[in-house]
Computed example of a mutant assay.
Amino acid sequence: MLSRVTVVLALTLFLVLEGCGGSGDGNPGSGASEGGVAALIEAAQAGITVEAMDVELDSIVQYHRLSGSPGEIAAVDYLARTLEAEGIQVKVDTFLAFISDPVSATVEVPGTDFAPEAITVSGSGDVQNLQAPLVDLGGLGDLPPILTETGERLILDADGPSGSVELPPYPNLQGRIALVTGQPRPGPVTQLTLMGAAGVVFVNPEERLNDLTTTSVWGTPSLRDYHRIPTLPVAQVKRSDGDRLRSMMAAGTVQLRMSTETRTGWKTLHLLVATIPGPTPDAPFVLAGGHLDAWYFGGSDNAGANVAMLEMARAFFRHRNQLRRGLVVAWWPGHSNGLYAGSTWFVDQNFDQLRRRALAYVNFEGLGQIDAKRFGAAATASLSELA
């Protein structure tokens, strides 16, 4: 993990220092020469140790960090205390966000012993003992696509205006439960809702269950997009259980019974931001961020990245007098069960400052995964040479 942290640190330092003039003598606002940039990156990396990161990681992963939960708030408090002990300027904003926490799901075939392990997902509709015929739709690629030219009015391409693509008729799902192989994501949930499904059981392509979200609304819904809040009950089963369901369907019609429960509504979130100012109050800055919330303990998703962000903030602060640009580091809440609620709220609240002064955004995700063989990065065209 240390090598990945130092790579991201070097990238972010380059964004803050690239093109700076001056002698690199450490005076505020003087910038750094090309050699000074390399020396500064090396000095910053030297201050990062595996031992310190292990302590920080343990301090975060001890908590279940579902957004708005006591565990996530405790992680925010730990990070804020650690940053403040270094003298770093921190701020914790609180705000209301529309959040959906998965609670439980059951899937069973009445009259048989089929009752596999199942989960629901963030954004699922709630239902109790929905019983209906099961319809096998195959995989995600077999669903009719959504017409993309209609903005907020979501319709299936097959139902669109003249000139849309030719598609075979799709099955009648009114009063039926769909069976689909693939991950429960916003796209297929929207497609199945428009097809009239009463519920859906997703079959994970692997022998596992993945906690996911199905809403396509980024952040808190507005009058413009609240109609896209999902209502379709969603359950997920493992691949072997999907295979068994299909073998039962091969022998005749299968009646399925399903229940799903979520806690969906308003919740107070805590957003931690650390600021290492530039040499002047209006200096440009780089924004770095990564989500703090997690399903369960979330070591690689995303506590490893959270530790990298903490170490980066410390490194920048120790060398703050050599920086020409500032750095703002944000630990986002509401990433998973609110679909980017924290980062969306931050942009809405700070839009003018971001438009006038923000130079780039660096996102931290998935650092420190066991047995990872490569470090990957993606970027917009303007930063493609750095990725």
Rank of each mutant, 00 (worst) to 15 (best):
L256H: 06
Q236D: 07
V234Y: 07
T262K: 01
H270T: 10
T253D: 15
H227I: 04
V237I: 15
L272P: 02
S222P: 01
R224Q: 08
R228F: 07
P230K: 07
R246H: 03
M248P: 00
M258W: 00
K238C: 14
M248C: 03
S259F: 06
K267V: 09
A274T: 11
L245H: 01
A251W: 01
G265K: 05
K238L: 13
Y226E: 14
L245D: 06
L272E: 04
P277C: 09
L256I: 15
D241V: 14
T262P: 06
M258L: 14
L272G: 08
S247C: 03
R263V: 12
H227Q: 07
Y226M: 14
I229K: 02
R257N: 14
L256Y: 07
E261C: 09
P233I: 08
T253N: 12
M249G: 06
T253I: 09
K267W: 02
I276R: 00
E261N: 11
R246W: 00
P277G: 08
V237D: 04
L256F: 08
A250D: 04
L271H: 06
P233E: 01
H227P: 00
R239Y: 14
T262F: 03
E261M: 11
P277F: 08
A251P: 00
L245M: 04
V254Q: 05
T253Y: 05
R257F: 13
D243H: 08
W266P: 01
I229A: 07
H270A: 15
D225P: 00
G252I: 10
S240D: 13
R263P: 01
L272R: 00
Q236L: 11
H227K: 10
S259C: 01
K238G: 12
W266S: 11
Y226W: 14
P277T: 10
A274P: 00
H270Q: 10
A235S: 14
R228C: 10
V273C: 13
Q236T: 12
G265M: 10
L223S: 13
L256A: 11
D241F: 11
K238I: 13
V234C: 04
T275G: 03
D241I: 13
G252C: 10
T231M: 05
T264K: 13
L245P: 01
L232H: 05
R239K: 13
R228S: 09
M248F: 00
V254H: 04
I276F: 02
Y226V: 14
P277Q: 09
L271A: 11
L223M: 08
L272D: 07
H270E: 10
T253M: 09
R239T: 13
E261Y: 02
W266F: 06
M258F: 04
L271V: 05
G252H: 04
S247G: 01
Q255C: 08
L223W: 06
H270N: 12
S247M: 11
A274Y: 02
R224N: 07
A250S: 14
